[in-house]
Design a protein around this nucleic acid. Structure first.
Lengths: 144, 144
DNA sequence: CTGGATGCAAACTGTTTGCATCAGA
DNA sequence: TCTGATGCAAACAGTTTGCATCCAG
């Protein structure tokens, strides 16, 4: 149920004294609709443009920042010069990215395998890990 | 022996019909001197400025790009809006980064542990991994 | 009604490019 | 000599900011 998720976010906004504006609603709705995609500010802006031409690019940026801060979205960067955002899968259930060096396609994989690695690092180095980002580069099935 | 490493790179440049210019020499020398540091173009530019004020920022960018392409340097991004470069430790001996969320300090660790992970991924997903970038976020010993 | 949110345009930052000049091979 | 490399300035892309206006609470 998508709007259930949305309502949860709206709740949270209110609780933290942020206003629930139509712009914020629209942007969240877009991400819920495109669950799993990694959208840039520009892309969000362009899509919304069609149905809501009043929304400004600055508002998109501000809203994406806000949502990232509230952990509604996760901020990503694939080193193409622009930040991307994706819906943060509720509870800490990360996934990571396989980036095809040829066609640029981005595949994903879960991070269960990484937990063991984290433990080993924590044991070796005096560093408390609380998050990680992993990117693998290579060639997807269509490209080799 | 540092200039041995430098000479190797100069060799390579010549072999690939790139010219060995004083600017390229200076930039490489800087990275050799600051081995292990992650320098941004701006930083390289500012440091060189002191001893070689003629060198232009555009040249720094072009040279960093070139070196990255030749695998002399490795291009990194710590999501602070600017690219950084570090000396690429000769043969494929990667290390990865532990980024302190509090003070921004960047620690490093080797990647021997990751190999097993790669194999598991390759087995599961149809994707030929040829490189990876891993970043862990957390708190370093001074910050928790 | 009131302060936070918005839209717009201008400012900013990091990076790239066009072009005349320079210099390594 | 002659093409690739440089320096400079202008152009660019993505993002941020100032400010008058608007509207959710």
């Amino acid at each position: 149920m998508q709007h259930e998720r949305a309502n949860k976010v709206f709740e949270m906004l209110k609780q933290k004294d942020y206003k629930v504006t139509p712009q914020r609603k629209e942007i969240l709705t877009l991400f819920l609709k495109k669950d799993g995609e990694h959208l840039s500010a520009e892309e969000v802006y362009r899509v919304l443009q069609e149905s809501h031409p009043e929304i400004g690019l600055a508002t998109v940026y501000r809203t994406l920042d806000l949502f990232a801060e509230l952990d509604v979205l996760q901020k990503l960067s694939f080193d193409d010069g622009k930040n991307r955002y994706e819906l943060n899968d509720s509870e800490i259930h990360h996934h990571h990215h396989l980036i095809c060096l040829n066609c640029g396609k981005v595949l994903e994989f879960g991070d269960d395998l990484l937990e063991a690695l984290e433990e080993q690092i924590t044991a070796k180095i005096d560093f408390k890990i609380i998050d990680h980002k992993v990117k693998f580069y290579g060639y997807c099935s269509g490209c080799y």
